[in-house]
Design a protein around this nucleic acid. Sequence first.
DNA 1: GCTTTGATAGACT
DNA 2: GTCTATCAAAGCA
Length: 189
Amino acid sequence: MDLSLPAPELAPHLLGCVLRVGDVAVRLTEVEAYAGEHDPASHAWRGPTPRTQVMFGPAGHLYVYRSMGLHFCANIVCGPDGEAAAVLLRAGEVVDGVETARARRGGVPDVRLARGPGCLGQALGLTTADSGAPLDGSRVALAAREHVPARIRSGPRVGISRAADTPWRFWLDGDPTVSAYRRSPGATA
DNA sequence: GCTTTGATAGACT
DNA sequence: GTCTATCAAAGCA
């Protein structure tokens, strides 16, 4: 696993990998690539800010942000140092620490534990305090998948207002934990 | 210092 | 399928 790859190349390679945060681990089933300064949909497209600075740093760190006040979304920073590339983790299947995740999510069906970016962040217990945390295996670790997933699909990204037609969303076809496609209301497409 | 916007999720018609 | 809650960071005056 080479996290210094550009986001669009790395994203499909992350599918099927297991991300562990504390007691909870998820198998990634849905991700989206963001190419930083070259991507109008990225938080970092206009240059570094206090909130996005971690994306400009070296690969192998978490970037966590808050959306709509209530929801936390997790990204894995990738690309070379200085490039604001990141891969948004949109959904996953909880493979360890299910009880912990279930408690955090308030008793929803298991298939929904990490379905959707905000849900995934909540299931893993991530907050903005975890933004910038390294994937060094202490609290957060990324394990390579054992086999290449059989069916990977790609398509337009979801829920963003710019460049929504860029096919940088990747997911495992047929996986029940993948969120239903949901078009951005104001997407320019 | 103030105003606008957002990489959503869940409830409601 | 459509509508809205809710707040911090970004952007602008």
